[in-house]
Design a protein around this nucleic acid. Structure first.
Lengths: 319, 319
DNA sequence: TCGCTTCAGTGATACGGTTCAGTGAACCGC
DNA sequence: GCGGTTCACTGAACCGTATCACTGAAGCGA
């Protein structure tokens, strides 16, 4: 390419990035580029500049349909900013999460967006030090930029709604977590249940529809709760499956409350009443934060996402 | 790293890839590596070797839930083979597909897996020449490796089932395609409809649930078809949404047949009767083919995927 | 006209590996 | 004991771009 124009490689490099060149040289380079169908090699560029244009996206579990939507949205948003997303799936496993985070760093990504499985894991601060990180959903001890959910509000919305409609015995279906019992969302559930005088039982579910269904079957034993509060819509889908297998009607025999608002939730029968986290807003915020941080901007911004309640038909009025 | 061991960089390079070294040197390198927490720089490696370890995944439209599942599965499968997936979304747009394919090549991916939006586009042969390509679903004029669906069988399964249950007036909901009216799947529909003596109307839907719903509303006018055959489960979900809005019951007023078998299809009410393409088999085959091709193996293998019919409750027996 | 600044472009070096030709030593059979 | 292989390793070139220090020329006011 340098010899094609008769210029020095340096001049070409400058021209291609519109930097410190005369109009004529610019034109000469442009012409040669189109002629040769030339495209700068991103690999060499990355080696020399230290920036790959890649953003790592480390998902908690892509079994979760809502997280799939999130990944698709983020990937698209990053592409619009001329970056590529490198999507990895921790499958709900903290050890795997740790390994993948390391691999992403080894891949020299310019930044990362993560949905921590274990936000208390000790490797996070160190990681945030070496590469810009944006955490979604859970806070990373203040060492990263964050798009956090106001889980306190979300839980309150859900539980108050259930209580208002007369539910007192409630099962909470939550993804199996790392052993961090003080995880904020869970703390809020306990606190709110106490405040509202609810009789609560927590059931954990591994990832995937099958696991959620199995967990739901445990929760829905005879004489069990009148309502199930699921910490993701995907888990709620498992409750629908379990109810069908057990011959229980929703919301006749048991009410279901979700958390996310995935597009499919409106299509079930009955529609799933759920907490809407405005996925578009989250996607935009995450993309904006990580782009800014990767470009050398602020690395610790914080965006708080507010939920709304989306009433459909899966919660029965017992009053 | 070279100086840490006192060896030449070449020896280290060989050792790290377990090539042509004595046991002792091997050990020395290994020790130094753990000591320094050394990790080879994939960028430099890519520049020197010409192989990035990345496989491009170019999806037709990630609005489609089944394609999301496919992307997740492939991404996971590739990671197990020590490769990374670079996932891009053509959003059903042939022009965009062309641009993204080019971008993937510019990124120096070692191979690509594509679900062509426009399999007849003229750039494919040229692309397949310069990088190993595996096509999923549609054939790329024999220039690439392929995991093709036996759409003839799939269409036959679906339409024969509808006919056996007494349906004669059928609407076909198919994604808007590039202007390739001779697309194999569509050809089969026409041929089979003729063979079975069905009265058929084709309605196209843009991508996404909203667009599918809108298209379904057009198809479900009064006095319309007794059954709708959707060319993806995602589109069928749009029919469920439209039916709900129009106050029509499934399968009472209209029967629905899908094509894919996405996990959610079993959760709807009624469950969606659909053509099951065995997504796991497709994922495994695609990963295997692209890995082999990227490693310099065969570039034109062909795997044909056979469908089965998954009867649930969305097709009414009119006989 | 002189000295100073600004600008376009050059040459060299760096990035961190891979790869190829080549070298000395050990090993082989005859 | 000798030519020929094989083995383990080295030195050097190379991948394609970015960047820094520098040069020659042009533009400027005094």
């Amino acid at each position: 390419m340098a010899k094609a124009t008769g210029l020095s490689p340096a001049a070409v490099s400058y021209a291609l990035r519109g930097l410190q060149v005369s109009e004529e040289t610019m034109e000469r380079v442009r012409a040669a580029a189109t002629e040769l169908g030339y495209e700068a090699d991103p690999i060499a560029r990355a080696l020399a500049s230290g920036r790959t244009g890649m953003i790592g996206l480390l998902c908690g579990s892509l079994e979760d349909l809502w997280q799939q939507s999130l990944a698709v949205g983020i990937s698209r948003g990053l592409r619009e900013k001329d970056r590529y997303a490198l999507i990895l799936d921790a499958v709900g496993d903290p050890a795997r999460e740790r390994a993948l985070a390391q691999q992403l760093r080894d891949q020299r990504v310019d930044g990362m967006i993560v949905q921590p499985v274990d936000p208390a894991a000790p490797f996070w601060p160190e990681l945030c030090e070496s590469v810009p990180v944006v955490a979604i959903g859970d806070s990373l001890a203040g060492t990263a930029a964050e798009v956090v959910f106001d889980n306190r509000s979300g839980v309150t919305l859900a539980l108050e709604h259930l209580r208002e409609l007369g539910h007192r015995r409630i099962a909470v279906l939550t993804p199996t977590r790392a052993s961090t019992p003080d995880r904020p969302a869970d703390v809020h559930v306990t606190a709110e249940a106490e405040r509202l005088g609810l009789d609560m039982e927590v059931v954990t579910a591994a990832h995937g529809l099958a696991a959620a269904t199995e967990a739901a079957q445990r929760a829905l034993r005879p004489g069990g709760p009148t309502a199930v509060f699921c910490f993701s819509d995907s888990i709620a889908y498992g409750v629908y499956a379990a109810a069908r297998e057990l011959g229980l009607s929703i919301p006749g025999d048991v009410s279901v409350m979700g958390y996310d608002d995935h597009p499919m939730s409106g299509l079930l029968t009955p529609g799933l009443t759920t907490v809407d986290w405005n996925i578009d807003g989250i996607v935009k915020a995450a993309v904006r934060l990580v782009s800014a941080a990767a470009d050398g901007g602020a690395r610790r911004r914080r965006v708080v996402q507010k939920p709304t309640l989306k009433e459909r038909g899966s919660v029965r009025d017992l009053t």
